[in-house]
Amino acid sequence: MGRPLVRQEGSMVRLDQKMRPHPEVVDTEFESGEGVLLHLESKTYYSLNLTGMRIWRGLKQGLTLKEISHNLQTEFEVDEERAESSVLTVVGELSQQNLLQTPE
């Protein structure tokens, strides 16, 4: 599993939470597993690597962060600590960039 492209900024999210993509954000995924998110209001785009895009896909599917972490552990054969750290890192950065809605 590659390192997520985005870095963690002090986030307050919990692993049992579900975070939903902002309605004004659209995305496209490439064969390489990378992808691009575009915030239509700010017209700013963000590129995500394979790990980041897997996390984004989980968020779109309405999974909890714990479930997304579990999927990463299975897909990339990494331990729980590393997978959870990656999820929190990416989600923290996505939230900071206003790419996610307020947590439920």
Partner: peptide
């Protein structure tokens, strides 16, 4: 590539 993808997403929307 990424910039083109983002622009195409914007145009598609």
């Amino acid at each position: 590539f990424f910039a083109n993808a983002a622009r195409n997403l914007f145009l598609t929307e």
